[in-house]
Design a protein around this nucleic acid. Structure first.
Lengths: 223, 223
DNA sequence: GGATTGTATATTGTGTACAATATACAAAGA
DNA sequence: TCTTTGTATATTGTACACAATATACAATCC
C-alpha cells in the first residue's frame, strides 16, 4: 500500500487508482470494507482530492460502490453477480478467439506461441503471481490478434473483477496440467483457424474457472 | 446545458456528469472540443471540484479523453473505433436475445409486446426524440428478460457511444417501416423461443444501423 | 422500559487558493 | 529569415478549509 513513488511523474489520482485497485484485487481491502478519504489520504501521504478522483474511477470499474453522503465501500461479489459477469465474459472470449482465427498474422502467431510456452514453463514452478501474469499475457496475445483493442479492454475489465478468486485458482497446483492442456488446445485451434474448435475450447477454459470460483465463494460463505 | 436544478438533491458531480454526457451525445459538445474546467464551472454555476469528478467518470465511459496537464476533450469517433465497438455490441446483443429466448417469463413477454407496439405507434409520427426513446425501451425490455442486469448495462454503454449518430438514423423517416418490421421479427422470435431466428434478426438490425452510421461518418468527413 | 428527540462527532460535499506545467508568442542571436 | 530562448498566460494538479449531512449515543418524555 506504501511506496507509491514507483511511478511518480503520472498524476497522483492515477497512482492512487492503481494502488487501491491492486489492494482490492489482492484482497488487502476486503469486500464491504469502507474507503474513508481522510484515512486513505493520510496513509498514502496525499490530499483528499486525488483520493476522491481515484474512487470515482473505481466506481465506474465496478470495484467499489458509492452511497451518497456515506462514502465508498469495496464491492462484494455475490454468486449471482459472478455468473452474470461470466456469462458476458464467455460471449466476449468466444468472439475474441473467433476474430483471432480470422485475422491473426504471422508475428502474432509467433507471439502467441511464445506466451503459451512461457506459461508452460512457469506452470511447473511455485510462483503463483508469475503464473497468473503469464496467463494474462497469453490471453492478451489473443486479444492483440483480434485487431479490436476495445474488445480486449472490456474482457480484461470483466476478468479483473474476479481476479482475487482466480489467484486462488492458480495456487491450486493440481489444476496446472489441465490449464496447460487447455491453453495448448486453444492455441492449436487458433493457428489452424478452426473457429468451432477454438470457441469450444475457450468455453471449457472459462467454465472450469467459473466452477472453481463458485466453489470458493460457497466455501467462504460457509465460514 | 443550463437548468441543472431539475434533479437537485443528488450530488453535483452526478448532475454535472449527466449534463455533460447529454451535451456530448446530442452533439452540443462536438468531438475534439476541449472541456475546460473553469469555463464549465462558470457556465454551470458550480466550482471546479464537481466538474473534475464528472470528467473522471466521462473518461471511464469513453466519452472524453484525458491528456495529462492538457485536460479533457470530447472523444472523436473514427470509423475503426466504431466498427470495433459494434463488433462487440453485436456479440452482446446476440447473447441478450439468446438468453431472453430461454428465460423470458409471462410478465416480461407482455412488457416486450407493449414496448414494441408503442414503438410502432410512434414510428408514424415526427418526433424523433420520442421514437428514439421508444426504441431504447424496446431493447431494455429485452435486456430485462435476460435476467442479467450487467449485460444490459454494458450494451447500453456501448450503444450510448453512437447515440449521436443513431439519432440521425431515426430522423430518416424512410427507414421507419423497416425498423418496425425488424422489431416485429425480433419480438416474434423471442416469443417463440427461436434462438437461431432471434440472433439472425438482431444481427440484421444492428448491421443496418452500422451501415447507416458509417455512411454518416463518411459524408461528414467529406465536408 | 421504550420511544423520541437532541447533540456531538465523523465523514462526505463543495469551494477556493496556490503550485506545477504546458502553450503561445515575442525578442534576440546567428 | 530562421532558430532559439525567454517570458507571460492559461490551464490543470494538489491541498486545504468550511458547509452539509449522516450516525451514534445520551437525555428526556410518555
Amino acid at each position: 500500500m506504501e511506496n507509491y513513488m514507483q511511478d511518480a511523474f503520472l498524476p497522483l489520482r492515477d497512482v492512487v487508482f492503481k494502488t487501491l485497485r491492486q489492494a482490492i484485487l489482492t484482497g488487502e481491502l476486503k469486500p464491504g470494507e469502507r474507503l474513508m478519504e481522510i484515512h486513505l489520504a493520510n496513509k498514502l501521504g496525499v490530499s483528499r482530492t486525488p483520493i476522491r478522483e481515484a474512487i470515482r474511477q473505481l466506481e465506474l470499474e465496478g470495484l467499489v460502490i458509492m452511497v451518497p453522503r456515506k462514502g465508498a465501500q469495496v464491492a462484494s461479489i455475490t454468486e449471482k453477480s459472478l455468473t452474470d459477469v461470466l456469462e458476458v465474459r464467455l460471449a466476449l472470449e468466444k468472439l475474441a478467439v473467433e476474430l483471432a482465427c480470422k485475422r491473426i498474422n504471422y508475428d502474432q502467431k509467433e507471439m502467441l506461441k511464445e506466451k503459451m510456452l512461457e506459461f508452460e514453463q512457469l506452470a511447473g514452478t511455485d510462483d503463483a503471481s508469475l503464473i497468473a501474469r503469464a496467463d494474462v499475457a497469453f490471453h492478451d496475445a489473443i486479444f492483440d490478434s483480434t485487431g479490436n483493442m476495445r474488445l480486449g479492454q472490456m474482457v480484461n475489465n470483466l476478468a479483473e473483477q474476479m481476479y482475487r478468486y482466480r489467484f486462488e485458482y492458480i495456487k491450486d497446483k493440481s489444476g496446472h496440467e489441465k490449464l496447460v492442456l487447455e491453453h495448448r488446445q486453444i492455441y492449436d485451434a487458433i493457428i489452424k483457424g478452426d473457429i468451432e474448435e477454438a470457441t469450444k475450447q475457450i468455453s471449457v477454459h472459462i467454465k472450469n474457472q467459473e466452477a472453481s470460483i463458485i466453489n470458493q465463494i460457497r466455501s467462504e460463505k460457509g465460514n
